[in-house]
Design a protein around this nucleic acid. Structure first.
Length: 360
DNA sequence: AAATCGGGGCG
DNA sequence: CGCCCAGATTT
């Protein structure tokens, strides 16, 4: 067994030089590569967790302009932070970013710590991100194993094990650590990811004809590229019914803040109920909230898909006689400028302007 | 080990 | 519609 790993390692070692040469010629120009300071590398790596490069680009630029350093991040109002993160998802990433910035001020002289182990202790920094920051920002020889790397290595070595298993990730990280070129650890880690993102694409669309290490790919030899990597099928999503209210009064719309924990923690939302209500039942609930209804009409149904959850939404536009206590009433521009709203409510929030302008 | 936590792009 | 993305944390 150990012998098998050694053989695989010797084989993998052959990719280092051609991969680096390919990276030198083909690396994308990305905002966080322009001035790869530890702070920039850190922010980009957190944003890139489970998120595509193209989606991150505009968020990264705006974030760095607004909060250019660790101190600015640590001292930013949390509402501003969440507004900068609005639409990017996995909002605990933003909160953890700020917690970690505080720790850097308190414990690390206002800088990122310079070792894998210390980075790993900070909130939001797991095995991948610690490896990425350590290697890219500080040249420390540690691997950075993300989804791209798992796919690339699984194919190069014709590994048919489930890449979701922790044991498989550790085995690959162990092999990569042995072959890391000491003088270019950050470039090597990025080159593996870049190859996965540009050439060694998921499913049946890998561009093997353009791959700098196609001649070293066991999966290609065996003609099993499209069957790799192997991943366990994921469970079906839980379905949830929702009734969402756009409640309007005196040129304002009613909002409320979500709980501090759980899904979309602390973000703002349109008042809603976890069931599909008829107009009559909706009126009863509104009465319970103290809303005096002048007019109510149904809005189109909408759906929002999360990773493990699906909202089937029905909506009501409600013209109210009063601005009820217990709800927060805002003018449309206050809403868009200051508060972070989840994308899930977009089908309804984007109608607020028109609904306010409509006579009822 | 399994569940939770967003949102979007693409075949 | 299902898969996957520069994953981490909690249970």
């Amino acid at each position: 067994m150990l012998n098998e790993i050694n053989k695989t390692e010797q084989h993998l070692a052959l990719i280092v030089q051609p991969l680096l040469a390919w990276y030198d010629a083909n690396a994308r120009i990305l905002p966080w590569r322009e001035q790869p300071t530890p702070y920039h590398v850190w922010i980009s790596e957190i944003m890139l967790q489970q998120t595509r490069v193209e989606a991150v680009k505009p968020y990264f630029d705006r974030f760095i302009r607004t909060l250019p350093d660790i101190a600015a991040l640590a001292h930013a109002p949390v509402e501003q932070l969440l507004k900068l993160w609005e639409g990017l998802g996995y909002y605990s990433r933003a909160r953890n970013l700020q917690k970690a910035a505080g720790l850097m001020l308190d414990k690390y002289g206002g800088e990122l710590p310079r070792s894998y182990e210390e980075l790993r202790t900070l909130p939001g920094i797991g095995p991948y991100t610690a490896g990425a920051i350590a290697s890219i920002a500080y040249g420390i020889p540690v691997p950075a194993v993300d989804g791209n790397v798992l796919r690339v290595v699984a194919r190069l070595t014709a590994c048919s094990e489930d890449i979701g298993k922790e044991s498989v990730k550790k085995q690959m990280a162990g092999m990569l650590k042995q072959i890391l070129p000491d003088d270019r650890t950050g470039d090597f880690n990025q080159a593996l990811m870049e190859l996965g993102a540009m050439i060694c694409l998921p499913r049946g669309v890998a561009k093997c004809a353009s791959c700098p290490v196609a001649g070293l790919c066991r999966a290609r030899e065996l003609d099993i590229v499209t069957t790799l990597p192997v991943k366990a099928a994921q469970k079906a999503r839980r379905q949830e019914q929702k009734t969402v209210f756009v409640i309007l009064a005196q040129g304002r719309v009613a909002l409320k803040q979500r709980p501090a924990k759980g899904l979309l923690a602390g973000l703002w939302e349109l008042p809603n109920e976890n069931s599909c209500l008829t107009t009559a039942k909706a009126q009863e609930l509104l009465a319970l909230w103290g809303v005096r209804v002048d007019a109510i009409h149904k809005l189109p149904a909408a759906k929002h898909v999360f990773t493990h959850l699906e909202w089937q939404m029905t909506g009501y536009a409600v013209y109210a006689a009063n601005c009820t206590a217990g709800l927060i009433w805002l003018k449309p521009e206050q809403l868009t400028e200051n508060l972070a709203l989840p994308t899930a409510f977009k089908p309804y929030t984007e109608q607020i302007g028109v609904l306010l302008a409509t006579q009822h």
